[in-house]
Design a protein around this nucleic acid. Structure first.
Lengths: 250, 250
DNA sequence: TTAATAGTGTCTATGAGACAGTATCAA
DNA sequence: TTGATACTGTCTCATAGACACTATTAA
């Protein structure tokens, strides 16, 4: 937080700093579950000369706009809305990636967020600089030459974080349209985790966490109607109990 | 990742971008456990005019130096070494904070790392711009007027992350000098968590995780010598098993 | 009636908390 | 011998996986 200037001090706030600054961007990893598959939103980069990675697919994102964005989170929300129209989804910070070489234009640092949204609320919108916007199944991502920048690495980190947190939080509930049924929620867990989950244990666990409220019976994907549920809190995920927890608590 | 320029493209990489950039800094939250207390390293800011928050205590950190630092992580390691002399501790990214108002000098974004180090390896070093460097017990942090910038909030987030991960990882092992004994490690856990932990369960758990290797008996803090242990992997924490895990695995 | 899925009950093994008991050292 | 701490064993209980069972609907 200190400027690297040896002795001379200035009494007024810096306008143009006496040293070079890295580029600052925000990228968003947007996940959804659709047709029993985990999908991520990618944007195809413009073909214009001078643009890095022309024609390649990459995560949606862009430079922080000092006038438009009052915070990094606000910037992420803006990017998300521009691409999907979704206004207030589950949005969490993933981390930041910065180096001299990740962007051919120069030293750059990106602040990465990841968002979970239900598919149906989305209306994809191609922007001025994005030739195309599309959902990609995680198991069928574009190979050769892969994503632009270090976005392949970032997406891997996002996937790891998502799968890790799905093991002990209610995150998948943010990827379904409400009201949803417990079997639908369970399939959502199974799709992300890539393995089957026991029905009985799953139901016990979800209901015990008390983050759902009944919303009447719904005609689900089967003959027999199932109870529909809504989230008590549309923003905050529930953390299921962990190890080391004292017997009495929860 | 796209510059906000409407139609005119440039064939050469940007040197001076046509739009303002935020300041980019890296801060490090350095924790240790000493005398049965969790402590954090703070730096007193210079009193020079023009410096933000003069005389206030703050997290060690500073601007990213595009020539010195090839990556954000390298920058964090540099800050850490400058303040403590420690070269390769446990270092993990915590997150980033950025807004138009957090630094009076202008729009700024900081990338925050947190480090865990054993106290004895440290030789505190006051730098050119840091009047003083000191350890503060977490339960006795400077009040009135509190930390500079938004570092109070950042420290809270670091504490929350630390305490959360201590519940299910071997993180505290990185805060002890090797070889250490299991009772020492247990006290470390208890200090951070702020509650007692059952001895028998603790020992079973630690040894079952197989991240320690015996290093001969050590004269500990008591009459009877205890087995000393070293870390098999000095960098990677062990994650203890979680919920939702299939019976067979681990 | 059948098929299909929703939802429940029961058994069992694991693992952790609680706590008492044993081992080993200094003084 | 005493005291202090290192370490172990045993009991019990909560929970989750496994899986069989019942319930409710459409066709």
């Amino acid at each position: 937080m200190r400027p690297r200037k040896p002795a001379s001090h200035r009494a007024t706030p810096l306008q143009t700093p006496p040293f070079p600054l890295p580029f600052t961007t925000v990228d968003v990893v947007i996940f959804t579950v659709r047709d029993d598959a985990l999908e991520v939103l990618l944007v195809q980069r413009a073909e214009s000369p001078g643009e890095p990675f022309p024609g390649r697919w990459a995560l949606p994102g862009g430079f922080v706009h000092l006038e438009l964005d009052s915070t990094l989170l606000a910037c992420a929300r803006r990017k998300l809305k521009e691409k999907t129209g979704v206004v207030s989804p589950y949005l969490e910070q993933l981390g930041s990636w910065g180096s001299a070489t990740r962007d051919p234009r120069g030293w750059s640092a990106t602040h990465v967020y990841f968002a979970l949204i239900p598919t149906d609320r989305v209306t994809l919108a191609g922007g001025a600089n994005s030739a195309d916007v599309a959902w990609f199944r995680i198991d069928a991502l574009p190979r050769h030459p892969g994503l632009g920048f270090d976005h392949g690495e970032i997406l891997e980190a996002a996937l790891e974080r998502l799968r890790s947190k799905v093991e002990y939080t209610s995150l998948p509930a943010f990827m379904l349209c409400q009201p949803f049924t417990l079997p639908q929620l369970q399939r959502c867990y199974e799709v992300i985790l890539g393995r089957a989950v026991d029905k009985s244990a799953f139901r016990t666990r979800m209901l015990a966490a008390e983050f759902l409220e009944e919303a009447g019976f719904v005609e689900g994907d089967s003959n027999r109607p199932a109870m529909g549920y809504r989230l008590r809190d549309a923003k905050t995920p529930v953390v299921f109990p962990r190890t080391f927890s004292p017997r009495g608590s929860e």
